[in-house]
């Protein structure tokens, strides 16, 4: 029975990427254990390459498909948007676990750390130093990304590329400042519950900023060198912008609770 397709949804041919990524994930996790226990990094490295390569191939396929409007119908794009929203929802729950730990420790500080928060004798980071600058950077990038969004909706590709480029620069400088802050932080990852929660929460946030930046960079080059995106069709940029706003919002929570909340 081979009837003609009469629905708007995407039917995809067999794809090698899921298998490549899964097997890469096996090596990656296996390698992580070996690296942590035996200082043997080769498996980890191969696994990471496979995962990255698989993701790249997958993404490339999707970009190729997205140019064909008979595949990327309104319904398919709608599906992608729903998927992205759900994904952001689970990411929020992921951060909930770190905030849970943070509030558990900071609202009920145990005796070992002197029953106070931040722990006795620990110098925390001044929120109105670099973190404040970073907050401003991220907030600003939130506005530039919205500027980009409005420009593309109005069909103004020049402004779009400009605003997108600015967003990326802001994101990159955020990451640099974050790295600088880590490098000069007065405490180490190992130093007890405060550093643990601090690095875990800000570190995972940083990783998300980094991912979001890559997402935006891909959008940038698609627009700049490939001439993708039109007034009607810019779904992937829209998803990247949503993701960026999510990262932005998480930072505000981090800033208020972890930086400002542990300030003495």
């Amino acid at each position: 029975m081979s009837s003609e397709k009469k629905h708007p949804f995407q039917i995809i041919d067999p794809s090698p990427w899921p298998l490549v990524i899964s097997m890469g994930a096996l090596l990656l996790t296996l390698g992580a254990v070996l690296a942590m226990h035996n200082k043997d990094f080769i498996t980890l490295f191969i696994g990471a390459l496979m995962v990255l390569g698989g993701c790249g191939g997958w993404w490339r396929d999707m970009i190729i498909e997205s140019k064909d409007t008979s595949i990327y119908t309104k319904e398919v794009k709608n599906g992608l948007k729903i998927g992205m929203l759900i994904f952001i929802g689970t990411e929020i729950m992921f951060f909930v676990s770190f905030f849970w730990v943070y509030f558990n420790a900071s609202l009920f500080p145990p005796e070992v750390i002197g029953s106070v928060w931040p722990p006795k004798g620990l110098k925390t980071i001044d929120p109105f130093d670099l973190p404040y600058l970073n907050t401003l950077l991220l907030l600003l990038s939130g506005t530039t990304v919205t500027w980009a969004h409005h420009s593309i909706i109005e069909g103004n590709k020049k402004d779009f590329t400009l605003a997108l480029g600015l967003t990326i620069l802001l994101g990159l400088s955020f990451t640099c400042f974050q790295a600088f802050e880590y490098y000069h932080a007065p405490f180490l990852f190992k130093g007890g519950i405060y550093p643990s929660t601090f690095y875990m929460a800000t570190g995972f946030h940083g990783a998300h900023v980094f991912l979001g930046t890559i997402f935006l960079i891909v959008c940038y080059f698609r627009s700049k060198t490939q001439g993708h995106y039109t007034q009607e069709s810019h779904t992937s940029f829209e998803l990247a912008a949503w993701y960026w706003h999510f990262v932005d919002a998480v930072w505000l929570f981090l800033f208020i609770s972890i930086y400002y909340g542990s300030w003495r």
Partner: peptide, 10 residues
Amino acid sequence: LITLPVLAGG
């Protein structure tokens, strides 16, 4: 989707 990420964090 709501609960697995919390386990993952844990």
